[in-house]
């Protein structure tokens, strides 16, 4: 699995398709968090929103890199469809880690904040919650299920709006609401960890659905 992730990471790196989502993320951070001096929880809420969009983009780009023949070779080499899909998800998650680090550090440079350990943990949890949800959307809208990228993009936008707006149902919606109203980061650590676990569950469900549909179609 490590070899598979290493291969996919290298291919993505060389293709430079990561560049656009990365720049978008940094741009969003700059716009949303510059000259901000409020509580860091709300600032990290903005960063998480950016992470949601960028992780969808990264995942769709990553899976769309390889054409079907090429993926067939990787599937036979790795031994199963599922292993390759898990490799793609792992690689997408790996790409989200440097974004998470940027999301933690850049707001401190753009604005003036007092930074505590609780802020760092909360920021990481919040961004990873959004990253997992974003990867789940990206996998569902990837080339594995949609030959025509136009439809996939439309569905991705609809799903993004849904997870942002579905009150009380979507972990992202709950998370962003909590972060906006928080005054102390330490109070939210527990509930955000629960949301992180829920979004990991959402990701697992999305992977299972994608696997089932793509194998049926193959």
């Amino acid at each position: 699995m490590i070899a598979l992730v290493r291969y996919m990471f290298t291919v993505m790196l060389l293709s430079q398709r990561y560049l656009a989502p990365l720049l978008l993320f940094v741009g969003l951070l700059a716009v949303l968090t510059s000259s901000d001096s409020g509580p860091l929880a709300a600032t990290y809420g903005s960063a998480s929103g950016g992470m949601l969009v960028c992780s969808v983009w990264l995942t769709m780009a990553l899976i769309g890199l390889e054409d079907q023949t090429h993926r067939s070779v990787v599937v036979v080499t790795a031994g199963s469809h599922l292993r390759v899909l898990l490799g793609s998800v792992g690689t997408a998650a790996l790409w989200c880690l440097p974004l998470t680090a940027a999301g933690l550090v850049l707001p401190l440079l753009f604005g003036s904040h007092t930074f505590t350990l609780a802020d760092a943990i909360l920021g990481t949890e919040a961004q990873l919650t959004c990253a997992f949800t974003g990867i789940a959307i990206g996998v569902l809208c990837s080339r594995l299920l949609f030959r025509r990228q136009g439809y996939a993009l439309l569905l991705a936008l609809i799903l993004l709006l849904a997870v942002l707006l579905a009150k009380g149902v979507s972990p992202v919606n709950v998370l962003l609401g909590d972060l906006q109203n928080a005054s102390d980061s330490a109070d939210l650590l527990g509930s955000t960890a629960v949301l992180l676990a829920i979004s990991a569950g959402v990701l697992a469900a999305a992977v299972a659905a994608t696997q089932a549909i793509s194998v049926r179609r193959s």
């Binding site: 290298t10 291919v11 060389l14 293709s15 890199l65 390889e66 054409d67 023949t69 090429h70 067939s72 070779v73």
Partner: peptide, 10 residues
């Protein structure tokens, strides 16, 4: 496979 079209830079 019958056609091995790689668009990769590796």
């Amino acid at each position: 496979p019958d056609r091995f079209t790689a668009h990769e830079r590796v």
